[in-house]
């Protein structure tokens, strides 16, 4: 039962491919695998942190002002992440740029606060946050792997080569906006294909 709270975010209700939430950073930052990992970690911290805090104070927040309260909590976490990144990972901070502060308007986080953390217990909200952010990270890193491999012909995380160069003529388009839309479209079609086959059986 508890395991279910954790795994539903990863597969059954994957925030990117099933709930279609938080797409903006996914497409913008997935040009490189290390950027995607960085974004995934930031979302993890903010989502878990705000889920826990909100579920602790859920009975003290009047329902009329709950959205502004959630927003303040989320925005505080985002600012803390932003400051920490600036101090300890300046290069990554630079590359994530405007998309780091924009985590605050990422629909996943406010969505989870409203739909889950404000109703369930602290522990369940924690698990939900962890599951959802792992699901988010899988999605964004998956897309980044496709795009980096196709656009540079290799995969390197923080200057450390994971997959050596396999083609001399990579497609630069994959690093540009059209490549982002194309990748996610095809991945979603593959998921649909799998689901349709499962139903057919």
């Amino acid at each position: 039962m508890k395991l279910d709270e954790l795994t539903k975010g990863v597969f059954k209700q994957n925030p990117i491919f099933y709930l279609m939430l938080g797409l903006c950073p996914v497409l913008a930052v997935s040009t490189r695998v290390d950027n995607a990992l960085g974004m995934g970690l930031c979302v993890f911290f903010v989502l878990v942190g705000s889920n826990v805090i909100i579920s602790i104070f859920k009975h003290r927040i009047p329902s009329q002002v709950r959205i502004p309260c959630f927003i303040v909590v989320i925005a505080s976490f985002v600012t803390i992440v932003d400051l920490l990144m600036h101090g300890y990972a300046p290069e990554l901070h630079e590359r994530l740029g405007i998309y780091l502060p924009l985590i605050v308007v990422n629909c996943i986080i406010l969505g989870r606060a409203e739909a889950f953390a404000s109703r369930k217990s602290v522990f369940h909200s924690f698990l939900d946050g962890v599951g959802m952010s792992i699901g988010f990270m899988l999605g964004i890193v998956g897309i980044a792997i496709c795009r980096e491999a196709l656009s540079t012909g290799k995969i390197a995380i923080f200057d450390c080569t994971i997959v050596p160069t396999f083609t001399q003529s990579p497609s630069v388009m994959m690093t540009l906006p059209p490549g982002a839309f194309l990748t996610i479209g095809i991945i979603m079609a593959l998921i649909n294909y799998k689901n349709i086959r499962k139903e057919g059986r």
């Binding site: 104070f57 003290r60 927040i61 009047p62 002002v65 502004p68 309260c69 303040v72 909590v73 925005a75 505080s76 600012t79 803390i80 400051l83 920490l84 600036h86 101090g87 300890y88 300046p90």
Partner: peptide, 24 residues
């Protein structure tokens, strides 16, 4: 409650700003 949350958040942010400022 909203005001209290805002004050706590302001305090937390100022603290983390001061902590990271030197480092940045």
């Amino acid at each position: 409650p909203l005001i209290i949350i805002c004050i706590i958040s302001g305090a937390a942010l100022t603290a983390s700003y001061d902590l990271t400022k030197g480092r940045i």
